[in-house]
Write a protein that binds this DNA or RNA. Sequence first.
DNA 1: GGCCTTGTTTAGATCGTTACAAGTATGCTT
DNA 2: AAGCATACTTGTAACGATCTAAACAAGGCC
Lengths: 352, 352
Amino acid sequence: MPMHSKPPTRRKVTLADIAAGCDVSRATVSLVLRGSPLVNKRTRAKVEAELKRQGYVYNRAAANLRRRTSSSIALVINDLGNPFFAEFAAGVDEALGSASYVTLLGNTGESPERQQAVLSSLIEHGPAGIILSPAEGSDDARVIAAVGRHTPLLVFNRSLGEASADDAPWDTLVLDNERGTHLATEHLIALGHKRIAFFGGHRDSSSCRQRRQGYLDAMKAANLAVAPGWLVESAPTRLEAARQAGALFNRDPAPTAAVCYNDAVALGLMLGLTSRGRRPGEDFAIVGFDDIAESSVSVPPLTTIAVDPRDRGRQAAELVLARIGHPDMEATHTTAPVRLVVRDSSCRPASP
Amino acid sequence: MPMHSKPPTRRKVTLADIAAGCDVSRATVSLVLRGSPLVNKRTRAKVEAELKRQGYVYNRAAANLRRRTSSSIALVINDLGNPFFAEFAAGVDEALGSASYVTLLGNTGESPERQQAVLSSLIEHGPAGIILSPAEGSDDARVIAAVGRHTPLLVFNRSLGEASADDAPWDTLVLDNERGTHLATEHLIALGHKRIAFFGGHRDSSSCRQRRQGYLDAMKAANLAVAPGWLVESAPTRLEAARQAGALFNRDPAPTAAVCYNDAVALGLMLGLTSRGRRPGEDFAIVGFDDIAESSVSVPPLTTIAVDPRDRGRQAAELVLARIGHPDMEATHTTAPVRLVVRDSSCRPASP
DNA sequence: GGCCTTGTTTAGATCGTTACAAGTATGCTT
DNA sequence: AAGCATACTTGTAACGATCTAAACAAGGCC
């Protein structure tokens, strides 16, 4: 067995090294690398052997420079620690990976300042596109200033600044919040509930407004009244929701069911009800929103609206890729579907 | 006010455009960009105005090619959907960002095959270093084959393949699992418990072995016996743990407390106990491991071992950066601290 | 005037790859 | 033997930045 003594290379192996090593030109090696049919079987084999022998690794940056292309896409996330966005990121990365793009990650931690910094740092690496899940309080003008007009931009989940998403000059992907709570409310109505509350969330958050609207629409469509005490605000955390649970029963008639702003709030409400001696899923019905991991293992398991963040990630990736393929198409505005997942927390009303 | 009519550039603005636009050489513009003291105040101002006017964005790829440097670091994660690793990733990105590196993300979904693909794709972008949280069942030889010997590698959390982490030729960062359960066990002992179980996890997982060992050591150090029925295996999920809860009480004497493999298992155990009429935190003490978000809001709040994944991410980033600064240093092997977080689930033993 | 200094600017080569146009064989016609 | 298509192969100039060494200008000194 012959000794394949590699030279003790300190520098990285380049096309030129391979070319020299098997007596062909750099151009030929390049063709081999890209699987061109132009190159002869024999030379291809010879070159491939040499590539392996020297442990060549492709320098995509140099290639991209020459070809004026890019093989990366920037993903800017407002809160990667939040499992919803982490799943979203995983979905994006998965879809980008199978299209042989690479993900340039940036986490802003909900800070518009950091978002500016992250965007202008990422843009210098020349991504083919940008997926942005904006920090709360982003300013669209500043974002555009950082991103420039040449790099395709997809905004996920929230609208940038004041603008409504539907006429933004960039692509958008948002959740169908209204339809979600509409479905949830219809589900409770179908079970026989007539007195249904909307629980949790802050009035000024845009997603909360939309979710509340879906609930109101469904109630109206079923000719059901909404008593003033049935709209309960609360910070979107479990603890705060548990504290507010009592507010549902301050006035008669009390509701027999609640559509919640999200799962965290719904789980908190279950806690609050339990500590007041009520049994969620038996004498009070609850529907959440998001379908976080925990919801399927709570007691009782939570009926909720699933938004499938990983699918949304894949979808976002595909939208950017499509836009990269057709830079001059008009901006698209996509609303992602949501679905009702029925579990045990949504029971029929106790017969009076 | 003069009209600053930008030419309708289709192509990206380059150094040459700026140079032409204000009648200096490309070299001078380059010096301005990098804030060199060599360039005269007046020309600097002139150039900077032109940069703004044309909306120049720096092309870091081209610069890196010429300078033979890199400003990115690859981060390969086994399961980004898991909040622990998502937090870790956020920590990495944060620390890399403030060192003006950019994060190249890759998620492997625990698949060694995908891990190979992801590594060889990322390596082509020439990262200055790689942080790898390996997929279960990774093969160190294949990983090294993909990464090559020139790019600094930091392996987080698990050892690659068979090798023990302590003599690997790459840098490692692992959690102090043993010390964690040691602390947990000591805490229970200090509260007065003598019959303490170790609950959950699989025998063959390396982290479980370490955590169990810490428990055994602490018991031995306190001269406490470990009855055979006190080591209960279970898949590391809430559901499975709830099912196994009964196993603790099959034989006399039954334990009065348990150190759990992780928080998921601990939360499941609490569920299982509750449905058997026992009250965790009142007549049975429980300590978890990980300090996931949920643990602080469970009922009762869970005493646990915090591992601070975001800090671990920052630490990992700093370790790679240090290694990039000193490529020829010997491999370092770091064990990250963990800390005991006391909440309500760890009570004194009921006086007999 | 010649020569050195200091401060500023620049031409030209270079990083590792690809595009382009042009080159060299080889075999097949006629 | 010339002509010509076919099948490869390659030299050279980019891509957009940086580096090096050299050039230039203005002033001071002898």
